[in-house]
């Protein structure tokens, strides 16, 4: 961004008030996570006799180890692994099938091309939330309950990613395809040697968004993973609360919540530029 002249920006007292306002906002955002972190480092007795402490305790290693290795219904390490498989499967799957269909739709003329394009578009109007019971039945009939393919496949179609790649391919100069054809390159050679490397940034930006989308799924894993060993971490947290009137084991639950946040937060903060790009592009 160009250096601003500073005529309407604040100085002196106004500047401090602006910072104060922003810091209050940041604290409001941080507060729930701070409490969760503190709760994950103390003993359960410290929590069930309120008010809980404000500063971290000395049980951090014990609590996290206990959660990862033992958990409550299943080891959290296992749930983390399930989430990782699901998030990677969804993100990479969506990117792969969308790249291929966008390539076909942009670079070929074939029967029903427009029909296919519209079919893919219409999936935007069919989020899993509006077709839960019949989709569950399909997955059950395939025997894919409590399986990775059941977690991944029904979510892997992507109108957004297909659009994005289509838009991008349309901006690729015609001369490149022309040259490839003159050189006798087959379509798939053109795709892998030229188009794919050119799409790198778009793929990376989309990957960030789709990874978070996959990681944060809740309703779908809730329906199809009845076996605790197949639970993903995001949906498994709720399962850790005891039914009835027992006290929840808060340190384990909160350690799990923190663990559930860490991978997607690392992805967002570590790839901030790509993330913002992906967010803006995928909403176009």
């Amino acid at each position: 961004m160009a250096e601003r002249s500073g005529m309407v920006e604040k100085r002196g007292l106004g500047l401090w008030l602006t910072h104060l306002g922003l810091i209050i906002g940041v604290l409001f955002i941080f507060f729930p996570i701070w409490l969760a972190f503190v709760a994950s480092t103390v003993e359960n007795q410290d929590i069930i006799r309120p008010p809980m402490p404000v500063w971290p305790g000395d049980q951090m290693i014990e609590n996290y180890t206990n959660a990862l290795v033992a958990g409550i219904n299943a080891p959290v390490a296992l749930m983390l692994f399930n989430s990782l498989v699901m998030a990677l499967g969804i993100a990479l799957g969506k990117i792969a099938i969308s790249l291929l269909s966008a390539f076909a739709i942009v670079y070929f003329r074939f029967p029903f091309r427009q029909t296919f394009f519209w079919l893919i578009f219409l999936t935007l109007m069919l989020p899993v939330e509006v077709r839960i019971v019949p989709t569950y039945e399909v997955v059950a009939n395939f025997g894919m309950l409590n399986s990775y393919s059941g977690l991944i496949l029904p979510l892997v179609a992507s109108a957004t990613a297909t659009f994005l790649f289509r838009q991008f391919f349309l901006t690729v100069p015609d001369e490149l395809a022309e040259a490839a054809r003159v050189d006798g390159a087959r379509p798939m050679q053109f795709f892998f040697d030229i188009l794919l490397p050119m799409s790198r940034t778009n793929i990376a930006a989309l990957f960030v968004i789709l990874f978070i989308y996959g990681w944060n799924q809740y309703l779908w894993p809730l329906l199809i993973t009845t076996d605790p060993e197949m639970n993903t971490i995001v949906m498994g947290i709720k399962q850790m609360f005891p039914s009835g009137d027992d006290f929840a084991h808060w340190p384990t639950i909160m350690a799990t919540s923190i663990l559930a946040m860490v991978p997607p937060v690392i992805v967002v903060v570590g790839m901030q530029k790509l993330f913002i790009r992906g967010l803006v592009e995928s909403e176009k």
Partner: peptide
């Protein structure tokens, strides 16, 4: 301010 985007609604 941006990273809570990564926190799942369920969490």
């Amino acid at each position: 301010l941006i990273w809570p985007y990564a926190v799942a609604p369920a969490v």
